[in-house]
Every structure is written in C-alpha cells, then in structure tokens.
Write a protein that binds this DNA or RNA. Structure first.
Lengths: 205, 205
DNA sequence: ACCTGAACACCGTTCAAGT
DNA sequence: ACCTGAACACCGTTCAAGT
C-alpha cells in the first residue's frame, strides 16, 4: 500500500528540512534524513527538487519571508511617524532573528548559483522593501539627509547583517564585552550610522 | 617504501585544503581529496587533526592571518596622519579580500565550537587590532568623536563584513545597481558611518 | 504524475597492522 | 610518531520498475 502526499510533499519537505536545520545544523542535514522524517523514500524529494541545493534554496526563500514578517511586525509596533525608532526596531528584529536561527541565516546567505533560483533572489529583495520605504519616508519627513536611498538602505542592511554574522561565528569574542544583548549592540551601532545620515546631529542624545 | 612528510604534513594539508577550497568550494572539499592531493593516504590527516572540522578551523585561522596582512598593507599605503583615509583603505581591502576568496570567507565565518579552537578565536581578534588602533588614533588626533572605541571598531567591521557577505551571496541583486566596484560601494557606505562618528560633519565633501 | 528498491561512487571515521 | 589498507555506516544521485 503506497501512501501519497496529495501534492503537498514539497512544502512538507521544506518544513521538515527547516526543523532539522534548527536542531542538527547545516552539516547534519541530509536529503535522506529529510525524506525519512517526511515519511517517504529517500529519493521521493527528486520529484519536487532537482537536487539537494534546490531544497536548501527553498528553505532559504522561506527564511526571507519569515524574516520580512518579523521585521515588519517590529516596525508596526512603533509610532508611525518616528522613522529613527522604526529603523532601530527593524535592526533589532533582524539580529534577533539571526541569533535565534543561526543555521537558517547561514543557509540564506550561502553562495547559490543565483540564476537557478530567481524566487530566492526576489524573496531576498522583497524582505528589504520595508526598510527601503522607511529610508524614503525619513527623507520626506526631514529625518534623514538627501542621498541615494538604495545606498542608505544597503548601509543599514550591511551593518545589521554583518553584526549578526559576526556574532553567530564569534559570540564569545572579547572585542566587545557582551554585557549588552545583541539587540542593544545593534542599537548602539546603527545609531552611529544614523547619526551620519541624520538631519539633526546626535539626535540620539 | 613509505614516504614521510618530515613533520610539515600539517601545513601541507592546510595549503592543499585552501587551494581546493578556492577551486571547488566548501561543498566539494573532502578530507579524502585533500589527503590525495597531498600524496598521503586518506586517513593520514588524522595524525594532525581531530576531524574534518579541525582542518577547516585551521584553514580559517590562516585566512584571518592573510586578511590582516592585506588590510595592514593597504593602511600602510596611506598618508600616516589621515585616519579617515586609512579607515577607508582598510575597508576597501577587506571587501576585496572577501570577493576574491568567497569560499575562504565562508569558512572563516562558519559556526565552530569556538572553545575547541582558541587559536582561531585569537587570530580573528588579532586581525582587528590594526582597525582598533586606527579608531583610537582618530580619537586622539581629533578626527573621531569620543566614545567606546570597541563599539566604533565593531561598527565599521560589521558594516564592511556585512557588505562583503551580502555581495558574495547576492551579487546580481538589483537593490543597488552595481555600476560601482565593490570597493567603491564600501567607500560610500563607510563614509556614511564615519560621518556619524566624525568631529567635522561631512568631512567627505 | 508519483513513489519505490537496488545500485553506484563517494564520504568521514575507526581500527588493527606495519615501520 | 607516522602512515597504511580494510571495514563500517552514511551520503547524493541515477535508474528501472511499479501504481
């Protein structure tokens, strides 16, 4: 008696892979384990994915969608006219996501043959839309200086992602005594950057 | 007739692994290939390393030493009293290193059990010493504002490393039309940050 | 279309054995 | 100490076969 998955096997595999990734890390993630936990034979995944890399790309894509959701929720908890507070809240949500799901972030920023995965590329770009909108709003309402908003968005993203990436790899590094939470470190660093892009000098203080 | 490696097999393995990493990527790197290219049996590496992860940690450590050398050389090509130019030069050297050796950077920032590799941790910290010295010099000579120099160093490192990491994974991303070289993008972004940490507002212009 | 079992080449790691 | 060959469990991928 053969059990079929009624067309949702693809999504089941992505979810199982995401859960296995969280518990065992990217090294311990094998196609055969994923298939086994999903209750299918070890080569059933090839019905839905070209190879293992394609499964990881789909997991990465889902990661960007989740990241975008959490960042948007953090922004929406702020006063709608305080652009600086919103940018800080978005940064804090980003690093929190990263620290809570380090292996997922690693898969999201592995080097794929990006031409093979256009949906992954667009998911990564979409996850930045909200940040870009904030930068443009800040320029309109007089919070941020004029300048290329794409560059300014990338400046914030780079700083926040770099902090997350470094913290995952070298949590115990003594370069910064980590008495502060990762969110508080992000706040300090991004405030330095926003001081450089703000109309009012040292708005923080 | 058995050929011995006279005690340098450990370093030979690190060099062979680094070369294989550059050509085949981290996925295609196997202990057995490394041993084969080094001309020894597939389990000779276990004489010098506990397991595969230990080999990768040694490759990562060598990467930080090389990175520190290239960043220092870039700084030394600047006018010795222009702290801002030196910080920009260090940033440009960092992203150039990353783009030239994407797989090496990936291994340098994988999540190791850092307690097992104290030499890797100290190599990563040492590679930042020169940047930290620049920040302190900038505070002394009136280029940079007062503030925790560890935080300010981490702010620069995070931005530069984040840009490198994002660029490796999503080179063709349309969020920023990449007419500029990676070094020029780094210069633009870091200048935004330095504006926020500079005594003179918009020193760039 | 969707799933399976058998098979292939490859992998990390262990171990008894050799010098 | 240093290296080897045999062995084990595991892996990604392919393929002929089943419904």
């Amino acid at each position: 008696v053969v059990k079929y998955h009624h067309g949702d096997l693809r999504n089941v595999l992505i979810q199982v892979a995401t859960k296995l990734l969280a518990t065992e890390g990217v090294q311990g993630l094998s196609l055969r384990k994923i298939a086994g936990q999903a209750g299918v034979s070890h080569n059933a995944p090839y019905m839905h994915f070209a190879d293992k890399e394609a499964v990881l790309a789909a997991v990465a894509e889902a990661g960007f969608q989740l990241l975008a959701t959490e960042v948007a929720a953090a922004i929406d908890r702020c006063h709608p006219n305080d652009t600086r507070q919103q940018l800080i809240a978005a940064s804090r949500a980003y690093v929190r996501f990263a620290i809570d799901r380090p292996h997922h972030l690693q898969v999201m920023f592995s080097a794929y043959d990006i031409e093979r995965y256009p949906d992954l590329l667009s998911a990564s770009e979409t996850s930045l839309n909200r940040l870009f909108d904030l930068v443009e709003a800040g320029q309109t309402n007089g919070t941020l200086i004029a300048g290329n908003p794409h560059e300014m968005t990338k400046a914030i993203w780079s700083m926040v992602h770099g902090l997350a990436s470094i913290s995952i790899a070298y949590q115990t590094s003594s370069i910064l005594p980590e008495r502060d939470s990762i969110e508080d470190v992000a706040t300090i660093l991004v405030n330095h950057l926003l001081d450089g892009m703000a109309i009012d000098r040292h708005q923080t203080q």
